[in-house]
Write a protein that binds this DNA or RNA. Structure first.
Lengths: 112, 112
DNA sequence: TGCATATATGAGTATATGCTCATATATTAC
DNA sequence: GTAATATATGAGCATATACTCATATATGCA
């Protein structure tokens, strides 16, 4: 996929710069993480407090397996991290920017 | 789905407010629109300039049908609008907030 | 070591998604 | 009216997604 060079011209201004493949992939992955209701609920909860897997499952009425699968998804994208305390894993958010995207969208959606 | 009231307590602060179903749906739909590479490319292009369907297809090397289908998707969410000029439909973005979410994510992705 | 608790993982399944092809519709010009 | 151009739409297909069940793994403790 060729990348058209931006011509430094006042008329062209900031338009017409194409997205490179890597950026496109990262952006789509980020939004994909935020496009599922279950992941949104989990991330929103973790944006407020650190939680164990079972706490998340209880609070959101989800199966432990469902939560664990989605946490793996979020962890692969480095959107959440965890610390161990015995057999319990406490998860927390790990990407302030993505949390900010989420809270912005929530604010926008609930105020229109 | 019950909605827990926020207790005005400094200790509780802003935590523990759950998302209502409607907000959750709107947020997930918005991010779903932004989670596909094709739609991202289309929306990003439209964030820069108004384009006809064929212009989008040409510029992004997509089939007219693909573009039309995705524009319908975006139009249903009121993320784009169009004006008619003869047989040509010129599409443009119609949700500044969503465009802002997109450009933020792009900026974030391309600077890390 | 053996048991209990917490979490992770793999397989199976139902549904959703996105693309392509063929075709329908709409507008303009003749 | 017909032809040409621009766009929309429906069907079919391949793939991705998210959930659930069953089970594996890991840690702590008696």
């Amino acid at each position: 996929m060729e990348r058209t060079e931006l011509i430094s011209d006042a008329a062209t201004s900031l338009a017409c710069e194409n997205l490179d493949e890597e950026t496109l992939f990262m952006v789509s992955q980020t939004f994909k993480a935020l496009s599922d209701a279950t992941r949104i609920r989990i991330l929103y909860l973790l944006s407020q407090k650190e939680c164990s897997v079972n706490e998340i499952a209880d609070e959101l009425s989800l199966l432990q397996s469902t939560v664990s699968h989605q946490l793996r998804f979020l962890k692969n994208l480095r959107l959440v991290k965890f610390r161990r305390a015995g057999t319990t894993l406490y998860y927390s958010h790990d990407d302030e920017h993505v949390v900010h995207l989420l809270t912005q969208a929530i604010h926008h959606a609930s105020h229109d």
